[in-house]
Computed example of a mutant assay.
Amino acid sequence: MTLDGAETPALVLDVARFDRNVARLKAHLAHLGVGFRPHVKTAKSIDVARRLFAGDLGPITVSTIAEAEYFAAAGATDVVYAVGLAPKKIARIRALVAQGVDVAVLIDTVEQAQALATTARDGGAMPAVLIEIDCDGHRGGLSPDSATIIEIADILRAGAVEVRGVLTHAGESYACRGGVGLVEAAEGERAAAVAAAMALRRHGHAAPVVSVGSTPTAHFARDLDGVTEVRAGVFMFFDLVMHGIGVCAVDDIAVSVLATVIGHKLEKGWILIDAGWMALSRDRGTQRHPVDQGYGLVCDVDGVPWPDLIVDDASQEHGIIKVRPGSAAALPDLPVGARVRILPNHACATAAQHGAYQVVTTGSRDVVAAWPRMRGW
């Protein structure tokens, strides 16, 4: 099959760009001397995950228990579930541990610690715990100097549950633009996690793991002293948000949505395609960036962008291509039936709309594989 004959809309993965993106981050982390624990919530595919580790499955991060179960069934044995633990989900996590999977869960409340300690009384398999640290006020977690960190750790130790360490995520790095502020965000992330781990150690908790990571800070970190591992997810694909933040070039974006031209409204400057928000997602993550990319940047079928051509609007199954407002660029002559590829704002959200990747390599329209994606929670 080729992209000229594939059903549309379809999710396209340029594996050459993917490999280049992965090699870039792995080399950077190796230079800094820290472990690599990619977040597979973006990929949701065993084929993609194996390529991250040159065929094997190394340590991974997941955002749903369904992901943990899916990757464990494919051979993953070292998993961090990096979303705050709901007590009702402990049983599913324990089932994975009982199968021989090393799972660490994330908590930041006394209630979660008590639920784990209570569950552990029956002597069954239990996950390890990472305590979530808030390094920038973006989401959940405890401040590095919070006394609750020690309280949680003491409850877990009394309940014979392993306190493995701390985890943080510099979500505010997504507010940076053009690379400005990312070095500082990376250092703030590192310092907060290390400070929390040191506090645990002063109170007799080994805390061997100090886990940090977002795609922006992973690439801009200059010193990761005291950190043991870095998590990042969208780095493997990149997207227009990452481009606007200053982490990647447009040419690094490895995923796109293949679509077909289905009509025109030339008096309005419109080209209509068969990819609406069901194919592209509703994510408008570049809306507050200096350059608003609409619902995505439009390329030809070979993945080469047209100047200032974006999906300006979308309904469920229709996309409207227009020249970016204020641009002098011309609307290309795209007849009905022509193929285009749309670079996404947010690769995670766009990929989630599709059941498989159509795998190509840069400059070729040949589809060399179809890699299924999992879904669910």
Rank of each mutant, 00 (worst) to 15 (best):
I60H: 02
H138L: 06
V301M: 06
H243A: 12
H138Y: 10
D14M: 07
S364L: 05
A330Y: 02
L13H: 09
I321G: 11
R324P: 05
A125Y: 03
D145G: 01
P144H: 08
A82G: 09
A98Y: 02
D47C: 05
C299Y: 05
D223T: 03
P144V: 09
A328G: 04
R37H: 00
V234I: 12
V230I: 12
D302S: 13
A218Q: 06
L167E: 05
K268D: 15
M278Y: 09
A23H: 05
V110W: 02
R339W: 14
A207E: 05
P290G: 05
L297C: 10
V180M: 01
I342M: 10
R365Q: 13
V80N: 02
R375G: 11
A352S: 09
V247D: 02
G204Y: 04
P208G: 07
A10Q: 01
V360W: 00
M1H: 11
V304L: 10
A191L: 14
F235T: 14
V298G: 12
V304T: 14
M242Y: 06
V129T: 11
A206Y: 00
A356K: 06
T286H: 10
P127N: 12
A193F: 03
V323A: 12
V304D: 07
M126Q: 15
A347I: 02
H243P: 00
G33F: 01
I60W: 03
I342W: 02
D108M: 13
G337F: 06
Q293W: 05
D366P: 00
L130A: 11
R139K: 15
A16H: 01
H31K: 14
R37P: 00
L258H: 06
L258C: 09
S327V: 06
R157N: 13
D366Q: 15
R37D: 00
V257S: 08
